[in-house]
Design a protein around this nucleic acid. Structure first.
Length: 572
DNA sequence: TCCTTCGGACATTCAAATCA
DNA sequence: GATTTGAATGTCCGAAGGAT
């Protein structure tokens, strides 16, 4: 289907005609409906408020009587056909459309996140009707369409056999949708006018082309992919190819990871552990579907259902997180829970019983081999870049072995500047701020070290003389990549404690506070001044270059330690 | 009866292939 | 450059089943 064919249909169907009073019965040869004035099909849509006002309710009230003007010739309303007219109707009933041509489903260009999560009908308005009905209007926002993958090789272009179609169908009146054609008068499915009835308008007959199943044998050595969330990529692969792995997409803001909300006083769960109020599968306490007080039902159906539910739950968590994160200060900038959440966790393991300890030796040997390799390529304890950085005595590095977060501190006048980043960003590089294509365009891009954005959170506080003389704090979210800091936003907190504390309690408090405008929406002159302000404090190019390098260095160290730890555990 | 879940059909988008 | 194709991606219908 071409875009030229699809676009007009969407625009014409989006504006529903207003409801008009039903025609009185008996005016049209006993039929409540007027005779058609143009080609079939024509449909009478249900009243918008049918089904109790929820257009999605499958078992709501039956549609009430609703009439509308006839569409222009060739237009199709996306509603079911009317009941067959009673006997005596002056015009023969439209056979082909009612029986074979299903009305085209109307679809909004972009459903809101709530409707998309619930797989329910949305509308163009924001908040949409459904969100208004469920009292979640404030979270009714457009979703973000995933960018289409580029550079995908297409198969051989199969030109349609024009001559064949014209031979078989001398009348080439294809329908506006391109999916069928209007046959010439006299060659219609209803057989034309066998008994003197007035000539019928042209009938819609589906085009001869269609989808023909074709089985592509798997290549030698092909193993079926691990269970996959088919719904996340539409309905699987129409071409029979194994669908690509689904990566969660967080469109809100690169600096705002999808971490769930925790009430004050609660603990922040570790990766893989269910947060308070949620099940292990990530079910939101707010209710399934992201609806307040939703009575979620654990159906306990098959594995496929569970997978599907997993996706829905993940969406719910993402939605909750988005709402929360629109206000969150990222003091724990690269949150461990968030970073790890992006790691695909689907891998097929056999759980069949075997002799205890059978694989220990092999695993231990593999670990030893990996450890040897890592130690061979390990940097010295104080590599030159680190030594050089330390010699400047500008920043104090607070690096605790075993933690994936690193803190840098420095004093600048009466200011205390703290910087936090996490090595988890290396393991889970997010989409680069610089598109892949741009990198590929430059010559020799393949030889360069892969660049990844590393999120960094700065907090600047001022020492107060009096305890209650709190001058507040600035919290800056930024991304370090390729020697620059890309600033996301600058928050201001009246209470510097709120900005500094790394507790769940403080985190909770921060979430209700205004995080400041997105940096790139600020006036250019203001942006310049902020950049100068940070440059003066040593937040500059050299720091932006050093942080990724240090992160890599630390990651290497931590990985080596991890290998040692796991190896000793296996061998114990 | 209402509501949620979710499989899968259907619609839309848009990059690649091909045509003119 | 325009047109066509078709895979990727998104929307949402409607059956099933749990909650009230």
């Amino acid at each position: 289907m071409s875009s030229d064919q699809s676009k007009p249909s969407s625009t014409t169907e989006q504006s529903q005609p207003p409801a008009i009073a039903a025609y009185p019965t008996g005016h049209y040869a006993g039929s409540p409906y007027p005779p058609p004035t143009g080609p079939y099909p024509f449909y009478y849509p249900p009243h918008p408020e049918a089904n109790g006002g929820d257009p999605n309710a499958p078992n709501g009230l039956p549609p009430t009587a609703y009439m509308m003007p006839f569409p222009h010739p060739g237009l199709v309303y996306a509603y079911p056909p009317p009941p067959p007219p009673p006997a005596g109707y002056a015009f023969p009933p439209p056979t082909a459309p009612a029986a074979t041509a299903k009305p085209k489903r109307k679809q909004v260009k972009m459903a809101c996140t709530n409707c998309a999560a619930a797989c329910k009908r949305c509308d163009e308005a924001r908040p949409c009707e459904r969100c208004q009905k469920y009292g979640i209007a404030e979270s009714c926002v457009d979703g973000v369409r995933k960018e289409r993958k580029k550079g995908i090789k297409r198969g051989p272009y199969k030109r349609k056999n024009k001559s064949a179609s014209t031979e078989n169908a001398p009348y080439s009146g294809y329908s506006p949708s391109g999916e069928g054609q209007w046959p010439p008068p006299g060659e219609q499915a209803n057989g034309g006018v066998p008994n003197g009835h007035p000539t019928m308008p042209p009938q819609f007959i589906p085009a001869p082309e269609g989808y023909y199943p074709y089985y592509y044998p798997p290549p030698p050595g092909y193993a079926p992919p691990p269970p996959h969330d088919a719904h996340a990529n539409g309905s699987g692969s129409p071409n029979g190819q194994p669908p690509p792995p689904h990566h969660p997409y967080y469109p809100l803001h690169p600096a705002y990871p999808p971490i769930p909300m925790y009430p004050p006083g609660s603990y922040v769960p570790m990766p893989g552990q269910a947060p308070p109020g949620q099940t292990q599968s990530g079910e939101s306490a707010e209710g399934k579907n992201g609806l307040p007080g939703g009575a979620g039902a654990e159906t306990g159906a098959g594995e496929a259902k569970k997978k599907k539910r997993g996706r829905a739950n993940r969406r719910n968590v993402e939605q909750v997180a988005r709402d929360a994160l629109a206000r969150v200060l990222l003091t724990h900038a690269p949150s461990r829970a968030r970073a790890r959440s992006a790691v695909p966790a689907t891998r097929a393991f056999s759980v069949s019983a075997s002799r205890f300890g059978q694989t220990d030796q092999a695993l231990s040997a593999q670990l030893a081999q990996e450890l040897e390799y890592e130690k061979g390529s390990a940097q010295p304890e104080d590599p030159p870049f680190l030594k050089e950085f330390k010699d400047q005595h500008a920043w104090e590095i607070m690096d605790v072995a075993g933690n994936d977060e690193v803190v840098f501190n420095r004093k600048f006048g009466k200011e205390n500047i703290r910087l936090i980043f996490s090595i988890a960003d290396i393991q889970n590089p997010e989409e680069s701020a610089f598109p892949e294509s741009a990198a590929e365009d430059s010559e020799g891009a393949e030889d360069e070290e892969p660049s990844y954005p590393l999120r960094v959170s700065f907090t600047i506080t001022k020492a107060s003389v009096l305890p209650d003389d709190a001058s507040g704090a600035l919290a800056i979210d930024a991304t370090a990549q390729e020697g620059t800091f890309v600033l996301d936003n600058i928050s201001y907190y009246r209470d510097s404690k709120i900005a500094n504390e790394l507790t769940a309690d403080a985190d909770w408090k921060r979430r209700g506070l205004y995080i400041g405008p997105s940096f790139d929406t600020l006036d250019i002159a203001l942006q310049d001044e902020f950049e100068k302000f940070l440059q003066e404090r040593g937040i500059n190019e050299s720091l932006a270059l050093f942080i990724p390098e240090y992160a890599e260095y630390k990651e290497q160290k931590e990985y080596t330690k991890w290998l040692e730890g796991v190896k000793s555990f296996i061998e114990a």
